[in-house]
Design a protein around this nucleic acid. Structure first.
Lengths: 180, 180
DNA sequence: TAGATTGTTAATCGATTAACAATC
DNA sequence: TAGATTGTTAATCGATTAACAATC
């Protein structure tokens, strides 16, 4: 979240940022930003805030987004296309459809560690299990299906349906005030 | 999360479910499920677990997903299409492109409370602000852009880029064991 | 009655908030 | 030196876990 904002700020030519400004962009409080960042190191200059570039680089290192990561995307439908568009910011060319065994072989020999599951919902579990078998350790599940995560694997599920149910519960209701 | 699983179970014809089984599907523990559910009511039968249908209905009521909710989707690109596909489970027909003022008028007069922002990233903030002005109280932001949420509005941002950065940090690294 | 499983209470843990000393 | 802002410590809060009594 902070990293995203820092990238935006740097692109906009901003040099210096205070914890409160960063907080505002992220809908949190200034002390929360400082507490979070200081878990890793002292990135700021007391009395002056943070150097945007320096903080972006350091946070990138912490998140390990500096070094390129090989990832495999399983699925051919609209979710797959939407994911590619969302990550690359543009349409990505060059696809071919291969049997899963072939894909698994490539994943294994190239030591791919990250996976995105964009299959039909009913195939999500099987796909994650298969990816785990060939060495994938982190999976983003955008299939809409549920997944029990095998040991040794981190699974993050992103589903518009789930997000919508959460919103439906969290939406402010007239006359009801919720703390936090 | 629980509601999603219950819908799947009911579709599969399952009548009864124990907290541990529900937990397994959601990658949590049985006592967590019981603690969560009992925040709202006593849905279960001691010694026998939960009736899938009864629990689904009750949880649906809590989440307010039973009553249909009017929502407005702003945006015409692939994110918008992908969202529709993800929610409806199929392609949805019947679109027309209207000036935003017209859309705002319709939102206001139909008292639409939910919004999905699938514009280009740079327009997300402006769109959320405009929706707030015409009475929207909950927004799902799938634009890829950042949004500061105006008061009185709940914003949930879903971004593949963000999810990927999180995974990149959480992914198990050889030799490092993390608690939790 | 015996066995199973919920719902609740108490204990633990971690995350957020508040306050402020350190220091640029 | 004065003002601003970080990083840290202590206090608060809420969420998770553990244990078990209640009861179907």
């Amino acid at each position: 979240m902070y990293h995203d904002v820092l990238v935006r700020l740097e692109d906009a030519g901003v040099r210096r940022v205070r914890s409160q400004e960063l907080a505002r962009e992220c809908n949190v409080r200034g002390d929360r930003v400082r507490a979070d960042l200081s878990r890793f190191d002292r990135f700021g200059i007391v009395g002056h805030g943070y150097d945007v570039h320096v903080l972006r680089i350091n946070l990138g290192r912490v998140l390990r987004v500096q070094t390129p990561r090989k990832a495999v995307l399983i699925g051919t439908g609209a979710s797959a296309e939407a994911f590619l568009l969302g990550v690359a910011g543009r349409m990505v060319g060059g696809r071919s459809v291969e049997p899963f065994d072939v894909v698994a072989g490539v994943v294994q020999s190239l030591r791919v560690r990250f996976g995105v599951v964009a299959t039909e919902p009913g195939w999500a579990q099987e796909t994650v299990d298969a990816l785990q078998m060939v060495g994938v350790v982190a999976v983003l599940n955008v299939s809409g299906g549920g997944v029990r995560c095998p040991s040794g694997v981190v699974v993050e599920t992103a589903s518009p349906m789930l997000s919508f149910k959460r919103l439906s519960f969290l939406a402010p209701r007239r006359g009801v005030r919720v703390s936090g």
